[in-house]
Design a protein around this nucleic acid. Structure first.
Lengths: 259, 259
DNA sequence: TAGTGGTCTAGACCACAAC
DNA sequence: TTGTGGTCTAGACCACTAG
């Protein structure tokens, strides 16, 4: 059983922070392994001689840091580290498309997890401001919008929305729910838009409640945002892909010259 | 004055979530502008007819999302959006070093903010495991360690730690607190290590309490982690730089070919 | 049914900011 | 001094999980 200290009334930190610090220490030192159950609120009240709200506040602190997950009716558990997906910047290499694999499937092959895609929706709609700028079209110009959610071993890890100009991809299989082998990039090349380069803009923030839901992550878990723009050999922007990834599940790798 | 709705007892969401949703809506719609003061806890209790803890819980929800900042004795305010620093992948271009500017100064010039560096510490120490792997040396091999904190307009935005092998940079100005014009990359090139390329590994997570302190960010604000490895023309890893950036202040840009 | 966390009430005292 | 948020207590009832 886990050994915890006592509250030090001389310590300037309030009791709930001291309790949180002791639990954090236990987690980081390995005294509480990933997946292990923390003492219940009742146990913390008993051990430290505090009211329930004080014990809860300590737990709340750790939830906010993403260190633990509370499961209603079961207990509070040390968050298990999810498998990390490393995304290298060659993940859109033409060689993969030639082999009939979209980028997500190619990664899954390499990293050895079971890929999945669901919640696919294709429609036409007005381009939001930031998207229109990147596609170099007027705001609200009608574009093709492809939404989908990616799963790894059945767990959602990323939601993505692609925007493509109608003159580029209108009427092609890009507008089908299943665009066929190699994904939409292969279809763009079929349509004569040979891809030349990509830019990615990477940021991080806390998720909206909707995103939390779609990615099945708890509070205290940030998301990585990646906005990718694809350019063809003419220098035209042919796709903007706006993705939101569960941050703990990802590591993005980029390689660039010193010039 | 801000107009808020009422709690709907038929709504399946608990009251505190409904209150949080109304406040969030007010913030996102612009009814509450950045820097504006939210209704006080007392005002929320009065308006919604709830106990104080319920009102606090609603505020807590928004703090966790990083949308608002509580200031003891003053009130709760909509978080002002900090200026975003866009980092392009050409920020380590040799042209800048030739002009006598380290990467951080070159960015500041371009973006028009006042740069600053403090908390500089240089020492030698054993290489941590992950660093040693990237430098391709044995773990615990003695390396040069350079720590510093970067400021933009006086506000801390990034903490960074560089690790360099002693055979590469030992005894050079890289070990001085001020390495001179062009920064340590210029000194590496002076020492014959012409830089060829970089890799960066990007992730995001919640900060440790130490990092929160150093970056002066509140709870609910994630950090971007960037681990950069510099390679010279011999293909040798000559530096690993581990950085932690306040996420809301950054957007990283990368450019790569479709191959 | 027992144990767990989720939500809520109605108070209390404290620390900090502003007037 | 007044108003603000920070912390704490001692209860209550509910919802979910598991045996």
């Amino acid at each position: 059983m886990l050994q915890l200290g006592e509250i030090d009334r001389a310590d300037p930190r309030p009791p709930y922070r001291q309790i949180a610090a002791m639990l954090r220490e236990a987690i980081e030192s390995g005294g509480l392994e990933p997946g292990a159950k923390l003492p219940s609120e009742a146990a913390l009240m008993e051990h430290f001689g505090v009211a329930r709200m004080t014990a809860r506040q300590a737990i709340q602190e750790l939830r906010g840091e993403g260190l633990v997950i509370a499961e209603h009716g079961r207990g509070v558990f040390v968050r298990p580290m999810p498998p990390v997906r490393r995304l290298a910047s060659d993940r859109f290499a033409r060689a993969h498309r030639a082999a009939g694999k979209a980028a997500f499937l190619a990664e899954a092959d390499k990293a050895g997890y079971q890929p999945g895609v669901d919640r696919i929706r294709v429609a036409r709609a007005g381009a939001p401001k930031g998207i229109a700028e990147r596609l170099r079209v007027e705001a609200e110009t009608e574009v093709i919008v492809r939404e989908r959610r990616y799963l790894a071993n059945g767990r959602p890890v990323e939601i993505a929305t692609s925007y493509l100009p109608v003159p580029v991809a209108g009427g092609t299989p890009v507008e089908d729910v299943d665009p066929g082998p190699g994904g939409i990039y292969a279809r763009l090349e079929d349509a004569g838009h040979t891809l030349e380069r990509f830019t990615e803009e990477v940021g991080a923030r806390m998720p909206t409640p909707d995103e939390r839901n779609a990615l099945e992550i708890g509070p205290g878990v940030p998301v990585l945002t990646v906005v990718r723009t694809a350019f063809d050999t003419e220098g035209a922007a042919v796709e903007v892909c706006d993705t939101v990834k569960a941050a703990p599940a990802y590591l993005l790798e980029y390689d660039f010259p010193a010039r």
